[in-house]
Computed example of a mutant assay.
Amino acid sequence: MFFMILAPDRPDMLERRLAHRPAHVDYWVAQGDKLKVAGAMLESDAPDATPIGSSFLIEAEDEAAVRALIAADPFMIEGIFGDDVTVQPVRPALGVWRPA
């Protein structure tokens, strides 16, 4: 099953986000094939837009497994993500990347 995750940052977290980004990236790289797509949510479409959260497309057995992954993310542990993380089951069907 696939899940879309939207994880907005708490206000004024840019410095903390940048400081903990290497650990955050390493954590998700270590998840291997579970992670399909990830990237920063941005405040605007400007080329130099500030990150204001993270988004992920994850493959996992169930929502509980996804929530466990997010709970162990360094951005969550360090209090960068807010309490309003959304986990939504999705069914990818079209696009360049899609499940086999």
Results as ranks from 00 to 15, higher is better:
1 M>H: 03
4 M>S: 14
5 I>D: 00
6 L>C: 13
7 A>L: 05
10 R>L: 14
12 D>L: 15
13 M>A: 11
14 L>I: 12
15 E>K: 15
16 R>V: 13
18 L>N: 06
22 P>E: 02
24 H>R: 05
24 H>K: 06
25 V>R: 15
27 Y>D: 06
27 Y>R: 03
29 V>R: 15
30 A>G: 15
31 Q>T: 06
31 Q>D: 07
33 D>T: 09
34 K>N: 11
36 K>G: 07
37 V>K: 03
37 V>L: 12
39 G>E: 03
40 A>F: 03
40 A>E: 10
42 L>A: 10
44 S>C: 08
46 A>T: 14
47 P>D: 08
47 P>K: 05
49 A>Q: 10
49 A>C: 08
49 A>W: 11
51 P>A: 13
54 S>A: 15
54 S>P: 14
55 S>T: 13
59 E>H: 09
60 A>R: 01
61 E>P: 11
62 D>N: 14
63 E>Y: 01
64 A>T: 08
66 V>G: 02
68 A>C: 09
68 A>I: 08
69 L>R: 01
70 I>A: 04
71 A>I: 12
72 A>F: 03
74 P>R: 00
76 M>A: 10
78 E>Y: 03
79 G>V: 09
83 D>F: 00
84 D>S: 12
89 P>F: 04
91 R>I: 15
92 P>E: 02
92 P>A: 10
93 A>P: 07
94 L>G: 07
99 P>K: 07
99 P>V: 05
99 P>T: 05
99 P>W: 06
